[in-house]
């Protein structure tokens, strides 16, 4: 018997992306540059996060013609973003044949209390997290892949580092916990106890976890791999740099060979300017995308 949309098929799709770089693109031309550079997938968007920040207002699912154009242009998987809680945008993306949906804090949330019930879909979802509780709440809703949130569109890696370190430290802490302590931990971090037990047994999350939100250089990508990321999302970092094709290739190679520092030095030479970036202290609380999601 043939079965589609199983947990294994949805999570397995993310397993195949491991060690790779997923790049934000806004048209066919950028998608081809990303594929040519060795991206494992592209995220089709109307605007990259840095431009969403600049534009302000409500950010929604992109115009479907952009996803169509990108799906036609490349043979690698195509992802797209739906607003947090906006299950109709997600159903539309699924109907279009998008390979993975990102229920994303980069867009303006559509629901102030609930995320999408992702178990209800055949297409797999990736969701953002800042800590283990948030990660496990998303998994219990059906997320098949996670990414630490970082702070999108800033080109500043500090939040991505903070979120990845937080998740990894919370996982390590579980290994020394007795069962009664685990029950309180579930209460404290707002995570289902069954999933906490599973994470304690595995010593890691049960799904792939990428880093996102602030990667702007080959060394940034390698840093996130060292901290335990399974791969890297690069949003504004590539097409907001001066030489996107070169930047994209360098980030892909630095992700594969993240322990080879001489190579990363070579890859970082003459790349041209990285995206300008934003110092986090200058962002107002209301401008922080990572605070979105519950």
């Amino acid at each position: 018997m043939v079965q589609t949309g199983t947990e294994r098929v949805k999570r397995g799709m993310a397993e195949m992306q491991k060690g790779g770089v997923i790049m934000d693109v806004i048209n066919a031309e950028q998608a081809k540059i990303a594929e040519e550079a060795g991206a494992v997938a592209v995220m089709a968007l109307e605007r990259v996060p840095a431009d969403i920040r600049a534009a302000g207002g409500v950010a929604r699912m992109a115009d479907p013609t952009i996803m169509e154009e990108v799906m036609k242009a490349v043979s690698i998987p195509v992802m797209a973003k739906a607003r947090i809680g906006h299950f109709v945008e997600a159903k539309v993306l699924e109907a279009m044949g998008v390979d993975y949906i990102d229920e994303s804090e980069v867009l303006t949330p559509a629901d102030d209390k609930y995320h999408i019930n992702k178990n209800d879909f055949t297409v797999p979802f990736v969701c953002g997290c800042r800590d283990l509780g948030e990660a496990l709440r998303r998994i219990s809703e059906g997320a098949s892949m996670l990414r630490t949130k970082g702070e999108p569109g800033t080109g500043n890696i500090v939040e991505a580092v903070k979120h990845m370190r937080t998740v990894q430290a919370q996982i390590r802490k579980l290994s020394s916990m007795a069962e009664d302590e685990l029950v309180m931990e579930a209460k404290n971090i707002g995570a289902p106890i069954e999933l906490l037990r599973e994470v304690r047994t595995l010593g890691k999350l049960p799904v792939v976890n990428f880093a996102a939100g602030g990667v702007a250089s080959p060394a940034d990508a390698a840093l996130m791999m060292h901290l335990g990321a399974d791969g890297v999302f690069v949003g504004s970092g590539i097409f907001k740099s001066e030489n996107p094709a070169k930047f994209a290739r360098a980030i892909v190679e630095a992700t594969t060979h993240y322990t080879d520092y001489k190579l990363i030095a070579e890859l970082s030479k003459n790349l041209g300017g990285a995206m300008k970036g934003i110092e986090l202290a200058t962002l107002k609380e209301s401008e922080r995308m990572s605070e979105r999601g519950w």
């Binding site: 043939v2 079965q3 199983t6 397995g12 195949m16 998008v98 390979d99």
Partner: peptide, 29 residues
């Protein structure tokens, strides 16, 4: 076999494997 929504699992007969149980195969894009 199509895009990700068409990815599937199926139990297969595979020549040369030990035992008679079918082999659980995961197909992804």
């Amino acid at each position: 076999f199509g895009r990700q929504v068409d990815s599937f699992e199926a139990d297969l007969d595979v020549v040369g494997l030990e035992g008679s149980e079918k082999y659980p195969a995961v197909f992804i894009r």
